[in-house]
Amino acid sequence: MPLDQSLNSLGFAKPPAETRVVVAMSGGVDSSVVAAQLAEEGYDVIGVTLQLYDHGAALAKKGACCAGIDIHDARRVAEEMGFPHYVLDYENIFKDAVIDEFADSYLAGATPVPCIRCNERVKFKDLLETARDLEADCMATGHYIQRKTGANGPELHCAADAARDQSYFLFSTTPEQLDYLRFPLGHLPSKAATRELASKYGLSVADKPDSQDICFVPDGNYASVIEKLRPGAAEPGEIVDIDGNVLGQHTGVIHYTIGQRRGLGIGGLAGPLYVVKLDVDEKQVIVGPKDMLATRSVPVREINWLGDTALTDQDEWHVSVKVRSTRPPREAIIRPLSATEAEVELLTPEEGVSPGQACVFYETGSSRILGGGWIWKGHAT
């Protein structure tokens, strides 16, 4: 949608030089390009990087965001482009708001998504307040998602490049936050286009690899992190079938996830078995045939609703939903129970729906995100 000519590229009716924007800089190529582009356009740019965990440990880990080397890279980009850069120590906030819940949720048999909580509770909360304290007109990030102006104000839309879209991780962005946020990369056709811009600006991070895994979970090994955070968490127990028959032993419920097939150590059975439930209290891993993973009814709570009218204004909402970040949206019906809770009926059953994952709502046939919530009591019917 073309902007009114009286507005600058960030939507403000004043020159870029009079528009202050705080850029959340992770040290990667995406946020570096955002900062460089806005600086080149003449905005009053301030770069801010969060120190989320211990530098010493982070420096040794490749492929993470917000690590020690990334702070160095962000600072270097700011120097190259000539704008101020600050590092904020958010270690305690990050531990309290993200890491502790991740550990407790995993121990309760859920499959948490800490990146969503980080955006919700740290980047778009405390960092956004810091941006306001710096008297910034807005805060920009390198996320691949779009903010569009609709009839009722700002709307959240999927990125133009479906392969890079980060809407699953940003569903909890509130209308108030969306009003203040900007996502300059959301319209780009590909990551290659971002790297071309990085080369155009002569950035030292132009060829830097993308971050991988959860930033505080080396090599995707959740269990090892949980054991360090919660000593004694990996207590052994039984692997049982749906009738309670013992099929084997395990070394800790935290080593398993809903839908897992490999690594169960219970071969020699008639057909393949999958983890269908985790019983933390009984220290049991329950396994069953694949068809037991199919879920049609998904209970969702802590809903953040981004529709034009209240969630409870209708008995049913016909939408599309994602229950995993890697899956395409599927048609569903939302039946609100309150302003923040609902039962979601999947028109086509999904496998491996797990508590702790997000259920994100999309307007069917459109790129618009209508919000989402958290799956909370196991896969149901």
Rank of each mutant, 00 (worst) to 15 (best):
P328A: 14
E316T: 14
S6I: 11
L170E: 12
P189M: 00
E227T: 15
E79W: 06
F169M: 13
N245C: 01
L59R: 14
R147G: 03
M139K: 04
F83L: 02
H255R: 15
A110D: 15
A151G: 03
F124G: 10
G42A: 08
S9T: 15
A67H: 01
T364Q: 14
M25S: 09
R20P: 04
R324V: 00
C215P: 07
I369D: 00
R335A: 06
K290R: 14
T295K: 10
E331N: 08
L264C: 09
F171S: 12
V225M: 14
Q51W: 03
A160L: 09
L107E: 15
A192E: 13
V98E: 11
E101S: 04
L185C: 10
P189F: 06
D165P: 06
D73V: 05
K125T: 13
S6H: 13
V240C: 04
G265I: 08
P184Y: 08
I99K: 08
E135T: 07
A339L: 07
R262T: 13
V48R: 07
G42K: 07
G27I: 02
A74F: 02
S367Q: 13
C359D: 05
T49Y: 01
E80F: 03
R230L: 07
I254C: 11
D179W: 06
L128N: 03
V113E: 11
H255E: 15
S31W: 01
A78E: 00
L370D: 05
P349N: 04
R121W: 10
A151W: 08
G244E: 07
A36W: 11
Y168Q: 12
G288F: 06
S199M: 04
I286K: 06
V45A: 04
D281G: 01
I93Y: 09
E302P: 00
S338E: 03
E316Q: 13
L134Y: 04
P114F: 06
P355C: 03
G153E: 04
S297D: 11
M1W: 04
V217T: 05
D207R: 01
L203W: 10
V33G: 10
G356M: 08
A58N: 09
G150Y: 12
V285L: 08
